[in-house]
Structures are given as C-alpha cells and as structure tokens.
Design a protein around this nucleic acid. Structure first.
Lengths: 200, 200
DNA sequence: ACTAACATGTAAAGCGTTACATGATTTA
DNA sequence: TAAATCATGTAACGCTTTACATGTTAGT
C-alpha cells in the first residue's frame, strides 16, 4: 500500500483551478484565465496565464484532470482542453470540506501608505483614499452586475452568493475609506487650528 | 549623469520594511519581525524572518539603510542593527507620496471554498464561516487593544488611525460572514422544504 | 499589407516560505 | 543537564510574474 497522503498536498491555487473545472465543463487554459478574471478576482487573486497552464499540467499529472487536443473549425491552431476526472472531483470535494480554515491573505497597499502618515501631507492621504474608494466602488458595481446576470441560473447559486458577499465587501471598503477620511480631517483640525473637535 | 530611475524600483515589501525604519529607531531584524507581526499584520501580511533579513541587505545595498554590529551585555552573540539613512528617508517619503494606488491583494480562502458550494453540505459551509467569524472577531479585538495602548502617543497618531480602520474592517468581515450565513439558510430553506422564503 | 487582438505556450527571473544550522539563556 | 525558548542567520525550494516565442484572425 503506497502512501498517498502527500499527493493531496497542493497549493491553494491548484485547488482554485480544479474548482473552476469542478463545474463540469471542458475548458482550455485561456478559457480558464478569462473566467477566473471575472469570478475569482472578487475574493481571490486571479493567477496569470502561465501559472494556469502549469497548474493544469500538475493537475493532469496528479490524475485530477485529463486533457485532449481539439482541432478548431478552420485552420486555427489546435488547442488543449481539460476536464476534471472522478478522482479530481473527489479530491477537490474533500479539500473544500475538510481543509483547515486559514486566515485570508490581505496586502493592502493603500493602508500601508496611510500607516506611514508621518511621511505624507493630509492632502496626499486624501488622494490615496479617494483613489481606493473609486476602485472599491467599481468592484462593487461589477459584482452587482454579475450577480444580476447569474441570478436565475440555479447552477450558479453559490457563486451568486459569493458575488453578493463581494458586493457588500467592496461597499464596506468604500465606506471604511470615507470613515478614515473623516478621521484624517479631525486629526488635521486638531493639529492645525486651535482646539480639537473630540473633547468638550 | 547616471540613470537612477530604476534604483527606486523596489518591491512593496522593501518599502514596508523601510517604512518600519522610517520611525527613526535603530532595530535588528528580529525586532523588525516582532514589530511587523503586531502592526503590519492587520492590513498587510507580515514577512518571514528570512525575508526581513534579505530585505535589510537589499536596503543597505541601495544606500537606504546602514547597519552596525552591537555587542550584547553579557556573552550573547553580537547582533546587527539597522538605521534608515537620509537617502532612505527621502526615498520612502517619495514612494508613499507618489507611487500609484494599486488595488489591495486579497486571497480569501474561506470565500473560495464557499464559491464551490456545490461541493459542500450547508453544515460544512456554516462551519467554514463560523471559523472565519472567530478569526475576524479575534483580529478586531487585538486592533482595539493595540489602539487603546497607543492612543495618547502623538507619534503614533497615524498608526493608530489605521488600527481604527482595522477594527472596523474586521468587524465588517465578521458581519459579512453573518450575512452570508443568513443567505445560506435562506437558500437551503428554498431548496429543501416547500416553497421559497423570497417571493410572495 | 499592416496592426491589433486573440490564443497557446515556454523560459527566466524574482518573491517568499520552510527547513536547517548555530549558539546563548532560561526553566525544569 | 536536558529541554524549551530566544535570537541570528543561510540554503534550498516552491510559487508567481514578466518577458518572450509563435501563430491566427479581424479590422483598416
């Protein structure tokens, strides 16, 4: 009996790609990248083309996906499409059900810069926060639009749930930036002028 | 006249470490790691020991930090401590003021798993969300405690501002998980039983 | 014909972690 | 005196991106 325990140890990105395949469609690397950009992107970063291609190779080597070449209609270059195997389905289900719940990884560049507020003028902090607000609102709107487009397909029930989560998450990011703008104003007022706005 | 433009191109993590040094203290790699774990951690991931050591070498090579060995009191091994240079101060200030505002990087493992809800039982989704809630509440409490400890030192005014942001951010994460738990209950009720709770 | 966009990959380089090596201090 | 912890690093490895190579299709 071979020890198969370590075969299951894949990085999260592999599980993400296998998760995309777990919806059952036969997809190329290019398809997967495009889909990942419009779905995972809201709560997970979207891997680059080259990483998707190498993850697919690894998944095939693990026996979790199979591939075949398909000829295109006209003289287009052939492409390789991937499909999840039964083994892959079992493995990704087990991962989703039983992996430990790790803390999300957050690298919030704008907040890092505001943490260094002693290096900035208040005006520059407002600039950073303003741009971050715009980004958050843009993401929120995209989540709303995508959720609307998927809302009647019961196959997309759970992806739609996470889109609703994303809608609220980015609304919160936007509002948190607004609250921080207020805090900065209060701090600047307390510094410059006479008296603080905080005490009686 | 040499082209110095590309010398300024450092990864964000370098700027984070230089940012830690920009508060003016002379610190060892070990000190920086400990401090980073209690500050950056709330909004930026905390780099490993080994990366901090190698970033410090890079910063010294760039001329942004200088180091010296200091002998310890008793027979303890000597340690190397780093201090930011004037050039480093100028560079990090320029970075904080003028770098483009990039979107935060989020890798939300729990949400990835919920996106794959078709692979889970509702009970397992609740388990994942429950653990995430606990994590978020724990982070929120730590942010509150740290903000309280720093609140009267005007030198920490901006770090305290980001701690207040973190307090609200993790409160929001906790509440977003609660909202999603409700959505899952509603979806499960619509599936199982008779009729949905959504329509008239 | 030329350009831009689509599409599929490979190669090289850089980012970041885990494991390891070393040694002192404290606690049991 | 043995084990646990603090502390400082280096080495090896794995993840991820950017740059590159190749070829097709559609628009101008």
């Amino acid at each position: 009996m071979a020890d198969e325990t370590n075969e299951r140890a894949l990085p999260a990105t592999s599980w993400a790609v296998l998760g995309l395949l777990s919806f059952g469609e036969e997809l190329s690397g290019y398809d997967l990248k495009k889909w990942s950009d419009r779905s995972l992107r809201f709560f997970y970063w979207s891997p680059s083309f080259s990483q998707i291609y190498s993850e697919l190779k690894r998944l095939e080597k693990s026996g979790y996906a199979s591939s075949r070449m398909v000829a295109q209609d006209t003289g287009t270059r052939d492409k390789r499409v991937y499909r999840i195997t039964d083994e892959g389905m079992t493995a990704v289900r087990e991962w989703a059900r039983e992996a430990p719940v790790d803390p999300p990884v957050l690298k919030h560049g704008p907040m890092l810069r505001l943490w260094l507020g002693h290096l900035l003028e208040p005006e520059q902090m407002r600039e950073v926060l303003g741009r971050h607000q715009e980004f958050a609102e843009q993401m929120r709107r995209r989540a709303v639009a995508d959720a609307e487009a998927a809302k009647d397909e019961s196959a997309w029930a759970y992806p739609t749930l996470t889109l609703r989560w994303a809608e609220r998450y980015y609304a919160s990011e936007r509002d948190l930036a607004a609250a921080m703008l207020d805090d900065i104003d209060a701090l600047a007022a307390g510094r410059d002028g006479r008296g603080r706005t905080l005490g009686p």
